[in-house]
């Protein structure tokens, strides 16, 4: 694998692959017309986001790096799951038990950082009397 340098689209156009293994240039108009390529082929790979996290860290923003790493975890979950996780964390949507379930679900799918974020939320929501 070539060294990945920012911006990836400039330096590593042929090295970066989607979750389905396609490079950007393998997403062609012709293949879209014929139905060979679908939306699923345009999903960013978690490793790419982790590499972007490293770039963010080198750029001096560890919080942006954390966000990109959480994004890398969520990249493997479906749209519906991601929307559901977000909604569950909003005020008044979930009980402690429901959020614990989501944290477990995240963890089981490789989402340790997101699970930790949810558990942290449970602690602070509880302390502030927002959930029970």
């Amino acid at each position: 694998m070539a060294e990945l340098r920012y911006p990836l689209g400039e330096h590593n156009r042929g090295d970066v692959r989607s979750q389905t293994g396609r490079t950007a240039d393998e997403l062609t108009v012709a293949d879209i017309r014929s139905g060979v390529v679908t939306s699923a082929d345009a999903a960013v790979d978690p490793d790419t986001l982790r590499r972007q996290a490293e770039f963010a860290e080198q750029g001096g923003n560890p919080q942006l790096a954390d966000n990109l790493r959480r994004g890398a975890e969520l990249a493997l979950f479906s749209d519906d799951d991601v929307l559901r996780f977000y909604d569950a964390l909003r005020p008044g949507r979930s009980s402690i038990a429901e959020l614990e379930t989501i944290a477990a679900e995240l963890e089981a799918g490789g989402g340790e950082r997101c699970a930790a974020l949810v558990r942290e939320a449970i602690a602070h929501y509880s302390r502030r009397g927002l959930i029970s």
Binding site: A43, N67, R70, A72, V82, Y86, C114, V118, H124, L130
Partner: peptide, 18 residues
């Protein structure tokens, strides 16, 4: 209709889709 945690997860959701 949000908390800092839900907003953080929302930010990560966007990142997850590039």
């Amino acid at each position: 209709d949000d908390t800092p945690w839900s907003k953080a997860l929302l930010a990560s959701s966007y990142a997850s889709r590039g």
